[in-house]
Simulated scan of single mutants.
Amino acid sequence: MSKSIDYGNMMHRAMRGLIAEVLEDVGANGLPGEHHFFITFDTRHPDVEMADWLFDRYPSEMTIVVQHWFDNLIVGSDGFQITLNFGDTPEPLAIPFDAIRTFVDPSVEFGLRFENQDGEEDDAEVVDLPDLDLAEALDLDKVEDPKPETASDDPAPAKDADVVSLDAFRKT
């Protein structure tokens, strides 16, 4: 029997479970209203699956945007799979929940951040977004090749996924 309750790991599992529940609902029903997600993950995690050219471009961390065009969103017990467009090329990704560093839904000013100190378990926290200038925090000047928006059920060709840096969320 342990000598204390491990609240940190319990919170970690609960918050990743919340992400799983949200993604399951989006996979089944689509994104409601103006909701969209910025998900930053550790590309070095051993269970991340992505194209070699994407890993070469993002060797440590990558942020994906789940908004206008995505396909094959499948949520499992340990992570999720999704196909996104990069330069008009659909690419499948497999992202374990343990690889996620931030999950942000700017439409409702909600965010989660998972910090990892070397050798320690992740510490999870809710990010208080109303105090942040979201454009500055997401460093939207670094968005790569933004494309015009299209509705998800529009038969027009799929567009690029926007990739942004969320370094402003990192503790120093």
Rank of each mutant, 00 (worst) to 15 (best):
M1I: 10
S2N: 11
K3W: 13
S4G: 01
G8D: 12
N9G: 10
N9E: 11
N9L: 06
M10K: 14
M11A: 15
H12C: 09
R13W: 05
G17H: 10
A20C: 04
V22L: 14
G27C: 10
G27P: 07
A28E: 14
A28R: 14
A28D: 12
N29Y: 14
L31P: 04
P32H: 07
P32V: 08
G33R: 03
G33I: 01
H35K: 04
H35C: 04
H35M: 06
F37L: 12
F37E: 04
F37Q: 05
F38G: 00
I39Q: 02
R44T: 15
R44N: 10
D47A: 13
D47I: 00
M50V: 09
M50R: 10
M50L: 15
A51F: 04
A51C: 05
D52L: 08
R57H: 10
S60T: 13
T63L: 09
T63F: 11
I64G: 07
I64K: 02
V65G: 01
V66Q: 12
Q67V: 00
Q67G: 08
Q67A: 12
H68A: 11
N72W: 04
L73V: 06
I74D: 03
G76S: 13
G76L: 01
D78A: 12
G79Y: 01
Q81S: 15
I82Q: 06
I82Y: 07
I82T: 05
I82P: 03
N85G: 15
D88S: 13
D88M: 10
A94K: 12
A94F: 03
I95F: 02
I95R: 10
F97P: 04
I100N: 11
I100T: 06
V104R: 02
V104M: 10
V104W: 05
V104P: 00
P106R: 10
V108N: 01
V108S: 07
E109V: 11
E109D: 13
F110P: 00
G111F: 08
L112P: 07
L112D: 08
L112S: 04
L112Y: 08
L112C: 07
Q117E: 14
E120P: 00
E121M: 08
A124N: 02
A124W: 08
V126H: 07
L129R: 06
L132W: 15
D133T: 06
L134A: 06
A135H: 09
A135K: 09
A137D: 03
L138R: 06
D139E: 14
D139M: 11
D139N: 13
V143P: 00
E144W: 09
D145P: 00
P146Y: 05
E149F: 15
E149A: 15
A151K: 08
D153C: 02
D153R: 07
D154E: 06
D154N: 08
P155Q: 10
A158L: 09
A158G: 11
K159N: 09
D160Y: 07
A161G: 03
V163K: 03
L166S: 01
L166H: 01
L166I: 11
L166T: 15
D167W: 07
A168L: 03
F169I: 05
R170S: 03
K171D: 15
K171S: 14
T172Y: 05
